[in-house]
């Protein structure tokens, strides 16, 4: 008797979202990156087609977080404060497929950089690398609306991934994305309904579905990852079952989440049994990222070069010769 793998067939399919724009499409990127398009659960190659592989982005900063682990400083040294140079290093040395520019320094309590300064940094990064760009903001509504409006304007046509809007603050940024042709991250706090509601609100204002990426707001290993995992899985199952308002590709932040946890940063002298800080942070990030990948993430923003390397290798291994885009 031969064993047959039971197969689920799905009526729905995840929306394909393309990031970046080449000269032909009105931008200056050397190529675009497309995510989504799956017709089955992650890595269930036996159940349906996965038209695009998950991709790994790395992040640069307008202002490096004071609490970032030393391990990161060892890798990046002084370029940590030079977003353009750091982006270049991420792409050429560590194989980042996209670059996220985190504009935390525009937060009124964290430096209060102006929208113009922020736009200048984004321009710099666009100039230093040719991969598509993600622009990552914060939760100070008034300020981030100003900043993102400006960023959208100066990056017109580049189809950046503007990261993010939330239910209580989406109109201004979404309108700017429509006006200047960018793609948008819809972020909601680990809840299937709230995620769906925001997507409905966006499409109700005629935001094009093929330009929405969801961020289910994940936690890192040891900080609610299990819960995150099951919410993402449910979002994906509903999306595949035909719920169009949940059928968007998902972005996650295992880098940011893991870099700040105590376990990744604690001094080796304080916790000798935890092993070297040099690699501990990478392990933490790998465990987080891998779980998120298996629960449905298509776009991972990561920090630790070793973790990036490991996750990229794993994706390659799992996909093998499938869909080599």
């Amino acid at each position: 008797m031969t064993f047959e793998i039971p197969r689920e067939t799905n009526t729905g399919k995840i929306v394909e979202v393309t990031l970046g724009a080449t000269a032909r499409e009105g931008g200056t990127r050397s190529h675009t990156v497309t995510i989504g398009g799956s017709a089955a659960l992650p890595f269930h190659f036996f159940e349906g087609n996965h038209s695009h592989r998950p991709v790994v982005a790395m992040e640069v900063f307008d202002k490096a977080h004071p609490k970032f682990p030393d391990a990161l400083r060892d890798y990046f040294g002084e370029v940590l404060d030079k977003p353009g140079d750091m982006a270049k290093k991420c792409v050429s040395e560590y194989g980042a497929e996209l670059i996220s520019v985190r504009l935390e320094g525009t937060h009124p309590e964290k430096g209060n950089k102006s929208a113009e300064e922020a736009a200048e940094i984004v321009k710099q990064v666009l100039g230093s690398v040719s991969v598509p760009i993600i622009v990552t903001g914060h939760s100070h509504f008034e300020k981030i609306n100003q900043v993102m409006k400006k960023v959208c304007e100066i990056a017109e046509g580049e189809n950046c991934l503007i990261n993010y809007v939330e239910t209580d603050n989406y109109k201004t940024i979404a309108a700017a994305c429509i006006a200047y042709n960018h793609t948008l991250v819809a972020q909601s706090p680990i809840d299937v309904n709230l995620a769906k509601q925001l997507n409905i609100l966006l499409t109700d204002m005629d935001f094009p579905a093929e330009r929405i990426v969801m961020d289910p707001l994940t936690g890192s290993l040891g900080y609610g990852l299990e819960y995150t995992y099951s919410i993402m899985e449910r979002i994906r199952i509903d999306g595949l079952a035909g719920d169009k308002m949940l059928a968007f590709p998902m972005l996650v932040n295992p880098g940011y989440e893991s870099a700040l946890v105590k376990e990744a940063r604690a001094e080796e002298s304080d916790y000798p049994e935890w092993g070297s800080t040099e690699i501990r942070g990478a392990y933490w990030e790998i465990a987080t990222a891998m779980s998120l990948l298996v629960s449905g993430a298509e776009l991972l923003i990561m920090y630790h070069p070793k973790a990036v390397e490991a996750i990229k290798a794993k994706i390659k291994e799992m996909y093998g010769s499938r869909n080599g885009d």
Partner: peptide, 13 residues
């Protein structure tokens, strides 16, 4: 909780 957040919309999610 899931039913509840689903109902926090007009008329419902």
């Amino acid at each position: 909780m899931n039913e509840f957040t689903g109902a926090l919309f007009l008329p419902h999610t």
